[in-house]
């Protein structure tokens, strides 16, 4: 069950998106988010969808993995869609049955919202987590936020913490799975009973998990010390971050996409919000 979580995972590769400077990717992701919410007309939205699809294609990440990443969010997506369908009122009434009134506008905005959420999740996970190794990602963040060092913000320490946290997500997931199986083998029941009972049933999982996490932390600290870790001072990086032509091309593409969306917002076939 837990092994299906792909959130925050990295899939190594050598695609254009993998090779883009993580600092650029970080900033461009923010642009991409704005782009998704800027698209107002259906034509512009179609373009955003195509744009996202081309990102997926360029990243060479299999569609199966992307769909797997969406799985944990299916509930939220359906929930927001339903709320939109029933709550939004407009001019064209499609269904009028008892107290249920469904308007075409409601359906349109539900479709928009669902697609937006999907774009949001796939786009950001492809641009950031799937194609950027955690070390690169935290490195990029450290560099982007390095001006804060002047204000005595421990930027390096935060980025090191993030690196280690990301590195230990799969390890701890595996561990949780193991502990759950072990407790199940001893007759623990996690699936039935009231919510309070189920929450209580989590205690025998969380305690061993925490104990082992502390032990791991202790071991890791020693191992890091043995490898001469002395904090951020005087540390160098194997991967130098130098902006290369590819990064500027990617940025240019993003700017063009921005302009296109602004332009297409004027065009509408059937709907716009």
């Amino acid at each position: 069950m837990l092994s299906e979580i792909t959130l925050g995972q990295y899939f190594p590769g050598n695609s254009v998106i993998h090779r883009t400077d993580p600092r650029f990717k970080f900033v461009l992701t923010i642009f991409y988010l704005v782009l998704i919410f800027m698209a107002k007309s259906d034509v512009a939205f179609l373009f955003v969808l195509l744009f996202t699809a081309s990102i997926i294609l360029l990243s060479r990440i299999s569609l199966k993995l992307i769909l797997k990443g969406l799985k944990p969010l299916v509930f939220i997506i359906i929930f927001t869609a339903v709320i939109n369908i029933f709550w939004i009122s407009g001019e064209t009434l499609l269904v009028d049955f008892w107290i249920i009134k469904i308007y075409a506008e409601g359906i349109a905005s539900a479709v928009f919202l669902v697609l937006r959420l999907i774009c949001l999740i796939t786009g950001t996970s492809i641009l950031i987590s799937y194609t950027t190794s955690p070390v690169e990602l935290t490195d990029a963040m450290e560099r982007l936020f390095s001006p804060l060092k002047k204000l005595k913000v421990p930027v390096h320490d935060f980025s090191m913490m993030m690196t280690i946290a990301l590195r230990f997500i799969p390890t701890l997931i595996e561990e949780t799975d193991k502990i759950m199986s072990a407790q199940k083998a001893r007759g623990a029941d996690f699936e039935s009973g009231s919510i309070i009972r189920r929450v209580k049933a989590m205690i025998p999982i969380l305690i061993p998990l925490f104990v082992s996490a502390f032990r791991r932390a202790d071991d890791l600290a020693q191992a890091m010390e043995c490898r001469c870790y002395m904090g951020g001072e005087g540390r160098t990086r194997m991967k130098e971050m130098k902006a290369n032509p590819l990064d500027f091309i990617v940025t240019a593409v993003m700017v063009v996409a921005f302009a296109v969306v602004l332009l297409l917002n004027q065009l509408t076939i059937a709907f716009s919000i």
């Binding site: 190794s133 990301l166 890791l220 191992a223 890091m224 490898r227 001469c228 002395m230 540390r235």
Partner: peptide, 29 residues
Amino acid sequence: VFQNPDNQIVASVVEEDVAFAPENLGIIP
């Protein structure tokens, strides 16, 4: 080298983990 391999690997990618010590020592990229 310690007993548990999981507890001594710092990075998520093999080459980045191997680079951890030389990075700490301030060697040029």
